[in-house]
Design a protein around this nucleic acid. Structure first.
Length: 550
RNA sequence: GCCCCCGUAGCUCAGAUGGAUAGAGCGCCGGCCUUCUAAGCCGGAUGUCGCAGGUUCGAAUCCUGCCGGGGGCGCCA
């Protein structure tokens, strides 16, 4: 791997796109005499616009008082000079974009770099955080619904993204096993045991009858609501945990609301706030002055009867998260909880623990559509599609992809007919198919004993489709960082689709096995390998498998 | 009334931190399998980016107002 051997590539010290970006930025800053400017460097939208483009001239032309195209010309010369043989030529286009046309050699080297063990990996963020992602946290009074599935898939994918970018992340499910809903839940089970109708606002799903059956077989007294509540919640949590495991979502912990009381954590959490001087008493209740921290009105922590509110307990829970050393608390909540953000944010700030960041990711609603009609989803009425049913219906991979492909902050229609179809209609198979196709090529190559040294050189020009594919692969680290920073796994769905599309086009245009030209077959086999690797990693971030055969 | 999300192709949606001729999938029309997987590829049609102003070299993107859809405003959880 040395420069003495002209038939081999050295592994680049760093990601080649970063190298380009640094050069462009350095040249632009020196030219403008301003270290604060951030010129862009993106792969060009169209081949005739070059391989990479920068707006460097446009962002400084105003300050320089010169026309952008004129500035661009001078910048382009300087950049081309610095990049040497990597750049073939430059062009000034449109309002003043600098378009870089890179040399084939740059592309071949980039592929060799991707094949390097350290190639194509995501560099860690500069300041890693200890984060706790709390998600799902659905009430343990019924099975997880398809909507919970969206939360689960999202929380899990965000966790994977954060870990991929170097953060230290734990995941947790908050179990609301206290409060009036649990009494209601127990009463509903009791009613089914004795053959009565559940209370007016009780739980009526069929699973309640099953729970009653089980309670009966365990000889629980229908009048013993306390035991019924504990047992019922326990069974539900077991079933919820099983559903999540089945979906490939691993929770590091299930945190019981009740345990907060049992271990005196509620008092302790509230004590923090009292000490900080942000509480007051009124009408016999203890309040948190959340209006000091931008909330609409003050909130009750402890009811006049002495019992903490849900909010009070949740404050204690979050105090405990801080206590455990997490510096970034990420709560994934449903849209119906958005009104809750203000007070929780206020509470965190009232704790006065510097360095602790709190954020809420709101998930909008999901509607299941079948035969062009929306299905109803009500947990109390038992008129729901459960996560288990959804998974049995469309499979884990399709469920993950469909639940994640839309931005979290918008309501979503999930077309069951489409998700169910094992055909080209289904976008998840489009991506997986690309991976399977590549594996098939690699299998064939291996069977024919065709070795391929990633460092082998070829002088054959890089095909246009090859170039487009390599461009997409080089985007990977940036895409992952972007998706992680913005808590936007749906971007990875889109990215995976782009890589697959670029591969399919490459497959059409470029013969791999038996490609004519010294070193070309080896080079393309390497490209296939790194493409498969990128697809597998991308799907992995979403919790989706990358099958070798389809 | 106040707060949050959304309004982009027939449908479902990408395009946040301003950039070149606004994209993808589905659906529709027409092509491509004696070469590595046709779950693929290629071509075609469809848009006042909700409306109206503003900011500027440049706005789907930022600001203001309005219209429309969804959600939320408990000593419930």
């Amino acid at each position: 791997m040395s420069e003495q051997d002209p038939n081999r590539y050295d592994s680049p010290a760093q990601d080649p796109v970063s190298g380009l970006r640094e050069t462009v930025t350095a040249v632009a800053r020196a030219f403008a005499g301003d270290d604060s400017i951030e010129p862009s460097l993106d792969s060009s939208p169209k081949p005739e616009m070059g391989d990479y483009s920068s707006n460097a001239a446009m962002v400084m032309s105003k300050a320089l008082g010169r026309p952008p195209r004129e500035v661009a010309g001078e910048l382009a010369d300087e950049i081309a000079g610095r990049l040497g043989e990597s750049v073939e030529r430059t062009e000034i286009a449109g309002p003043g974009f600098i378009n870089l046309f890179l040399a084939d050699d740059w592309y071949r080297r980039a592929v060799a770099g991707l094949a390097d063990p350290a190639g194509g990996t995501v560099p860690p963020v500069e300041h890693p955080e200890r984060a706790l992602v709390e998600s799902v946290s659905a009430n343990p009074t019924g099975p997880l619904t398809a909507a919970s599935g969206r939360h689960a898939a999202y929380g899990d994918a965000v966790t994977r993204l954060l870990r991929a970018t170097g953060h230290q992340v734990s995941t947790e499910y908050y179990v609301n096993d206290g409060g009036s809903q649990i009494e209601n839940f127990a009463a509903s089970i009791a009613a089914r045991m004795t053959g009565d109708e559940p209370p007016e606002d009780g739980y009526r799903g069929e699973y309640v009858t099953d729970l009653a059956e089980r309670a009966r077989s365990e000889r629980i007294d229908p009048d013993d609501l306390e035991t019924l509540a504990r047992s019922g919640v326990g069974w539900m949590v077991d079933s919820i945990r099983a559903s999540l495991v089945g979906f490939g979502v691993e929770m590091d912990g299930f945190f019981s609301e009740r345990s907060l009381y049992d271990e005196g954590l509620v008092d302790r959490g509230i004590e923090w706030l009292r000490e900080a001087g942000h509480t007051f008493e009124r009408d016999g209740a203890l309040w948190l002055r959340t209006t000091d921290f931008d909330d609409d009105k003050d909130r009750v922590l402890v009811r006049s009867g002495g019992e903490p509110t849900y909010f009070g307990a949740d404050v204690a829970y979050h105090a405990d998260k801080v206590e455990r050393g997490f510096t970034r608390l990420i709560d994934v909540l449903g849209a119906d909880h958005h009104g809750y953000i203000g007070r929780m944010d206020a509470a965190i700030r009232a704790m006065e623990r510097p360095g602790v960041e709190f954020e809420v990711q709101i998930m909008q609603m999901i509607h299941l559509v079948e035969g062009g009609r929306r299905t109803k989803m009500s947990k109390r009425a038992g008129d729901i599609v459960t996560l288990d049913e959804l998974l049995a219906d469309i499979g884990n991979d399709a469920a993950r992809f469909f639940l994640l492909q839309r931005s979290a902050d918008r309501t979503m229609d999930l077309d069951l007919d489409l998700a169910r179809s094992q055909s080209s209609d289904n976008p998840v198979y489009y991506v997986q198919y690309a991976h399977a196709r590549i594996q098939s090529i690699l299998r064939k190559a291996a069977a024919e004993g065709r070795g391929h040294d990633p460092a082998a050189r070829t002088e054959v020009p890089v095909d246009r489709s090859e170039k487009a594919l390599i461009d997409r692969l080089l985007d990977y680290p940036g895409e992952v960082h972007e998706a992680a920073a913005r808590r936007a796994p749906h971007r990875i769905c889109a990215y995976g689709t782009e890589v697959a599309a670029a591969f399919h086009a490459f497959y059409r245009d470029c013969q791999v096995i038996g490609a004519e030209g010294e070193g070309l077959e080896a080079s393309r086999l390497t490209l296939c390998e790194v493409t498969a690797q990128t697809i597998e990693r991308s799907l992995g971030l979403l919790g989706i498998s990358a099958p070798d055969r389809m």
